[in-house]
């Protein structure tokens, strides 16, 4: 009886993961090597056409631009998220809970709705323009919406918790006595940060960057709502190829770029973890 239940459980779980986790990715990789067909999405002929189209300078430019936007987003998330996580980790247990709940509420709120809300703030007659005019920084409304800045602002807005949470989990565990010891030995704040806090927090930094950088490139609706009709993110390209241009091989090949970036980042994360682990053993 018990072993039958056990087999059933293992069978169900593994078949779900293989059927809907592993197989789809293999099919996706396969599709990227097929020929394009305007009617049937793709033709079952082996071809490298998709990768040739991918290497087209105009297409590559969009990908590079998306990488740039995601890099800026990751950078700003880190710059805001790091002090946030550090300060939160140093709070009393009660205030910590409050801050974390306050952080989670927007995170649980529909992200499309929040992007739309950002759009209302940035509009020509939105809050930000009105505010800037009132304090006399600008004379007339300036165009905030449909710029790269707006897209970055929206991406940071959505991705910030993904940076803060792994950083917080890491910094919370940091042994504060190390900081005190360093201070007693006469280290400056900058030294303490550079030599102790930052190296120990690297796993958190990497985890946060991985969770922000690649997913940010997929958020096509942010680019559509805040960046206008231009193709800004890799997500827009993929959506375009799958839903409008019906060039599935090219769409798949584009997504392979994302998968490769993801793999690269996860590998370097693994290397950082290993390096930190060996460092601890050393006397």
């Amino acid at each position: 009886m018990k072993s039958r239940t056990r087999q059933l459980v293992i069978g169900l779980v593994s078949s779900w993961l293989i059927l809907f986790g592993v197989l789809p990715i293999l099919l996706l990789v396969g599709t990227s090597f097929l020929a394009q067909d305007p009617i049937e999405f793709m033709r079952y002929d082996i071809s490298l056409d998709a990768y040739r189209q991918l290497a087209d300078p105009a297409y590559l430019e969009v990908i590079l631009r998306s990488v740039k936007l995601a890099a800026f987003t990751t950078f700003f998330c880190l710059v805001i998220g790091y002090p946030f996580a550090w300060l939160t980790a140093r709070l009393s247990k009660k205030s910590r809970t409050v801050v974390l709940i306050l952080l989670m509420i927007p995170f649980w709120t529909n992200s499309l709705v929040r992007t739309y809300a950002i759009r209302m703030v940035l509009g020509t007659q939105g809050l930000l323009n009105t505010l800037l005019m009132k304090i006399g920084l600008i004379d007339g409304p300036i165009r905030l919406l449909y710029t790269d800045t707006a897209v970055i602002l929206g991406l940071v807005y959505l991705m910030l918790p993904f940076m803060i949470l792994p950083l917080y989990a890491n910094l919370e565990k940091l042994d504060y006595r190390l900081v005190e010891a360093a201070r007693d030995l006469g280290a400056s704040y900058i030294q303490i940060f550079r030599k102790i806090i930052w190296p120990l927090s690297l796993p958190g930094v990497f985890a946060g960057c991985i969770l922000v950088f690649v997913p940010a490139m997929g958020l096509f609706y942010v680019a559509t709502l805040l960046g206008g009709a231009r193709q800004l993110l890799v997500g827009n390209l993929i959506q375009q190829q799958f839903l409008n241009a019906r060039n599935w091989p090219l769409g798949s090949a584009t997504s392979i770029v994302l998968i490769l970036m993801m793999t690269l980042m996860l590998t370097s994360y693994g290397l950082v973890l290993r390096r930190l682990a060996t460092r601890k053993v050393r006397p």
Binding site: L17, I18, G21, P24, L28, F220, F242, S255, M262
Partner: peptide, 25 residues
Amino acid sequence: LQGTLMTLMMAPDIILAISLLVLFV
């Protein structure tokens, strides 16, 4: 399988979306 699950969690939604679309078709 555990690795697959973790990859599913980290991977961008759009990858999951189109890979499942290809599977369904």
